[in-house]
Amino acid sequence: MKTSSAKLLILLLLLIITGCARDDEDDSSERRTAVTVKVAESRELERREVSVGRLETTSAPAVAAETAGRVARIHRDAGDQIEAGDLLAELEGQPQRIAVNAARAEVRRLQALLDNEQRRADRLTRLAERQSVAQDQLDEATTAVEGFEAQLESAQARLEDAEYNLERTRMISPVSGRVQRRMVSAGDFVSVGQVAFELVSDEKLRAILPLPEHLQDRIEPGLPVRLSIPARPDEAVDATLTELRPAVGERSRAIEVIVELDNPGSWRPGGSVKGEVIVSRHEAVVVSPASLVRRPAGQVVFVAEAGRALQREVETGLRTADHVEIVEGLEAGEKVVVDGAGFLSDDAAIEVRDEGAGS
């Protein structure tokens, strides 16, 4: 009986000793939070002002009749795409053709008279060299040649004018683009200067972007601008701010900036355009947005050092979907906790599961 009691007492002592050892082991091992870290990097950031505006054409010529006549044929209508040099309409050119034929006949007649008088003058010149003709006869022939030359020049000018008027019976597009409006129909009689077509060129465009009035001292011509349209938001065009309109809108209290550009392809006047005016560029330390944690002290990040998470209060600046600028409180190259940052406190023990190279 005494032997059994002794064994039971030894067993109880062993159990107590084992439990105390386990308690000591649990106290000595601290729980570590699994986290991922990335290195804070230095990057050039752009301070942008974003605006949605409209596209306009820089060229919208009106094609008018340059000679009077009746419209014979219409070759282009409103909405048609055109190229520079395309025929828009033709006028009946019979009066102009008659004038051309008459002018050509007059040129031929005067050319024949001039040639005949020139031969006579040449013959009298040779006779005068042998003193076989009176000088006044030679002078008369020379004067006649000069008179016919002047008449021929005048007739050639009238021929050019008649040919010009005949060519002007063809209304030609001066630009590539679209027909905005057609104001004449076949059979209409048009006079000189009467507008027949309104065109819109889409080769050169102008983006009009409204910006808040308070930015007028920070915006100036020459700043880079990134433009895109809703149909193709990923196809950005880099341009330069061309000018500022001096007046402030009475209703919107906004200034308008103007950006002129070559049409990149399918942009249409009258459409919407998104513009990002790059006001400045500067180097900054950036981290992932997931690294920022709000605490009673303000916004903080946790820097990973030797298995510990050290809390840093930081001042932030520019934000994007990918990164946040750290204005103060962190240096480039420091390792910052990303995933798991929200579960940490200052000087918490961490276990780094993944380490990236940047924000």
Rank of each mutant, 00 (worst) to 15 (best):
L152E: 15
G271N: 12
G85D: 13
S42G: 06
A62Y: 00
T36P: 02
V327Y: 05
E328L: 11
V303W: 03
P269S: 09
V184K: 06
V175Q: 00
I278T: 12
Q135H: 12
I258V: 14
R245L: 13
G271P: 07
E83S: 15
D24C: 13
E149R: 13
A84W: 06
A297C: 14
S288H: 11
R178S: 12
G85M: 04
V285I: 07
V225D: 04
A103Q: 06
E331L: 11
S291W: 08
E313A: 07
A78S: 12
D188N: 09
T320D: 09
P233W: 00
V50N: 07
L241C: 11
E250N: 03
V52P: 01
A134W: 05
L227T: 01
V39P: 09
A65D: 02
S51Q: 07
G270Q: 05
L138E: 02
G177S: 10
A84K: 11
G249Y: 05
T57C: 08
D322N: 12
V63W: 01
F343N: 14
V39F: 09
Q81M: 11
L14Y: 13
T33Q: 12
D77S: 08
R319P: 05
V37G: 03
V352S: 00
A239I: 06
W267L: 00
L138C: 06
G298S: 01
V133C: 09
A65K: 00
P264H: 04
L199C: 10
P296H: 06
Q299M: 11
L244R: 14
L8K: 15
E149P: 01
V200S: 00
E351K: 14
S201Y: 02
V71E: 02
